[in-house]
Design a protein around this nucleic acid. Structure first.
Lengths: 183, 183
DNA sequence: ACCTGAACACCGTTCAAGT
DNA sequence: ACCTGAACACCGTTCAAGT
């Protein structure tokens, strides 16, 4: 799943170990965790971490990409609901997933900046799924014209980053946003 | 407007100078600007900054409080629109104000944490206004039951923090959220 | 009462030197 | 080709010593 450049065996081992330790520490301390500490616990020099992952964002993406890809894979396997409900439900699922995986919201918000041009970021994975769901709901006329996939992803990311570790509030605020304020 | 404890004249001057410099640097570099640099440019020792403002959040609040208070004061002076429109318009105004004042979104999101218990934070100022507008719109039955003032402030803060320096997108996403996705 | 400068324990990034 | 450890220029916080 994770596409890795051809590396010498020790290089690959180090890379994997760094991501493993990073996942653990980011989950515990958030996206701002010290890179120095990650390197220390992974048993590598700080320069090694930095060459494998030229930016904090690149490391965060490596930590979260597989999980997000799996989340996206689950989007297809849904029962035959009304397309607008399908979209709403999936946005809710993404929101809860993001909020319960510390550091992911921050990574999504930063998007592709700080990444090398070739690798696709988690935001793009999500965006593709949302685009498909929006197209489906649109085609049956169930969607408001202003509801674009880009803005919906922005909205979900925004709510997630503002409610890290609080899935209950995040879900409630998202539902409010998908419903609108007027009776 | 800014309530200041009784201080010796030189203490008061230093405090004012720190807030002045902080406002300038936060506007230019964002909420994460170095406190060390603020102290340096204000011509005080870092310890002095730290005693006047025991946390970064306390300094940010001091930087933004007056502006937010003025924004809140403007809420009353509105023509006689439908209450739900009045609420929507004001939320839009807050969003644009926040997004165009760099660092404010981060300060609002952090809320009262890192502040001494007595001083009221910017979030509370906004919340009071939104509560009043929600009550008015609710009383004429124009509002969806799920739309609480607390969640609306959360929503606005979320959208603002995710769209710093991009008022166009922020406004568009907010309108989407206030309208809902369904046709 | 309030200030300063130094001390402390960090941090991210880069680079020469190793294997 | 990949690694390491040290060097560099920072950072926030605290504390002794000053006025």
């Amino acid at each position: 799943m994770e596409q890795v450049k051809r590396l010498r065996a020790d290089g690959r081992r180090n890379r994997e170990r760094i991501v493993e330790v990073a996942a653990e520490l980011v989950a515990r301390e958030g996206a701002q965790v010290s890179l120095e500490e990650i390197a220390r616990r992974a048993g590598v020099g700080s320069a090694t971490l930095h060459r494998h992952f030229p930016s904090r964002q690149a490391l965060l993406e490596a930590v979260f990409r597989d999980g997000v890809a799996q989340l996206c894979a689950r989007a297809a396997a849904k029962p035959g609901k009304a397309p607008a409900d399908e979209l709403a439900d999936w946005l809710e699922e993404v929101t809860v997933y993001t909020v319960t995986h510390r550091g992911l919201a921050a990574a999504l918000l930063a998007g592709p900046e700080g990444l090398s041009a070739e690798d696709i970021c988690c935001t793009d994975l999500l965006l593709n799924v949302v685009k498909a769901l929006v197209a489906r709901a649109s085609s049956v006329g169930a969607l408001h014209a202003g509801a674009t996939a880009e803005d919906l992803v922005k909205l979900v990311n925004a709510i997630a980053v503002a409610n890290e570790n609080d899935p209950t509030t995040a879900r409630r605020v998202l539902r409010l946003a998908l419903t609108g304020i007027r009776r």
